[in-house]
Design a protein around this nucleic acid. Structure first.
Lengths: 205, 205
DNA sequence: AAGCATTAAAATGTATACATTTTAATGCTT
DNA sequence: AAGCATTAAAATGTATACATTTTAATGCTT
């Protein structure tokens, strides 16, 4: 479904208004298709919480929300450390190499928010993959995608990017040295501190 | 969306074949509607992993899968203990009373699998609710609903029900006595041992 | 007979048309 | 003027029709 991704992009880039009903005819005009594919996409997006009900009929982009951002960070911390624990013994140098390749791609300065979020996920994913647990991985991916609505702030106004890259490097070093406990702990700190940073920002705004 | 729930029930009760493509025309005939509402429902169910792609087009009910059952138990253990930790200080006697009421309803012997699963979730939910974290709660709910495809085995052939009820009572007592660490620990054991029990069963079958 | 290309049948994907529901504008009552 | 009922306009929900893609059956080549 290609349309779904176009709508996701528009949500991530704030090109769709939050908190107001999205009209099917407006969307069908906007994306140049009829209402049927629009409906298909809206149903899927609703199920993944990209959209929420607006009144008795119709959907809207949910407003950014401090508590949701916190919850996503908490859940990611719990589940990603779980994935790392299961992965640890099976992490090969190929996984680490792949992670490094995404890390260097993240150095580029001309990335869109979406590309940055995508690369960030791929980086983590390269390591977690070794856990060989598709259901767990999918859940973590869903959380990351949902979190990416908030991620924009981190890489934008907050300038959290450099600090994050630094932690990523440390993390890969710990993994290479087989320091399991330390790597798990750093990952938890990494996710939670990014979450804290973000919730501080949202409290002010 | 009413149709979506009818399809979910049919999946839970194994009234739809696993691993074979579900044809839109067949479903539209089965449920007495045209293909458009069927498509809407399929899109939503696909997004929630109730259905998975089958070939280049079309969807199917995924086969029951040992690893998925394990992953769901692991994730539930991590996230439900998280919810309990946040809830703990805010649990009032009204929450516990509500939990007890679901517990006694679970004693009935003439419940369908679906009803049993629903009451089991409501029981846990009555306690977790106190955490006041809608996003976390929704994720846990989604995991429980997905796990309910496997739950049937526990309450059916495995006769796990009595043991489970016993643990539920112990748990509420620990909560009433404000034994936080013990309550969290019991919850984790409760979820994981049910998961183990189930995966043993699936290994044989 | 196994494997591949071809092609007919059947499925999905989408647009249009219409029925039903929801929204919001209007006028009425207090 | 505030609140409610009424009703017209606009939206959603669904069916049907058709275009496009996919599937699988058939025949061809080796």
């Amino acid at each position: 479904m290609e349309l779904m991704y176009r709508i996701k992009e528009d949500i991530l880039n704030n090109r769709l208004p939050m908190g107001v009903a999205l009209r099917q005819v407006v969307l069908s005009a906007r994306y140049g298709v009829s209402r049927i594919p629009v409906r298909d996409a809206l149903q899927a997006l609703k199920a993944e919480a990209w959209l929420v009900p607006h009144g008795k009929a119709g959907v809207m982009v949910p407003k950014l929300n401090l508590k949701e951002a916190e919850d996503l960070a908490l859940m990611r911390a719990r589940l990603e450390t779980l994935a790392l624990e299961f992965a640890f013994e099976h992490i090969k140098s190929t996984h680490v190499d792949e992670a490094y390749s995404y890390l260097s791609k993240l150095e580029a300065s001309d990335l869109t928010l979406l590309e940055r979020g995508e690369l960030n996920w791929r980086f983590h994913c390269a390591v977690y993959q070794a856990c060989q647990r598709p259901t767990l991985m999918r859940s973590i991916e869903v959380l990351n995608i949902q979190a990416s609505r908030y991620l924009g702030f981190q890489f934008g106004p907050l300038g959290y990017h450099n600090h994050s890259q630094q932690e990523h490097r440390e993390w890969l070093e710990l993994i290479t040295c087989r320091e399991k406990a330390a790597a798990v702990q750093l990952l938890e700190r990494h996710i939670m501190s990014a979450g804290k940073c973000l919730s501080e920002y949202l409290k002010k705004a």
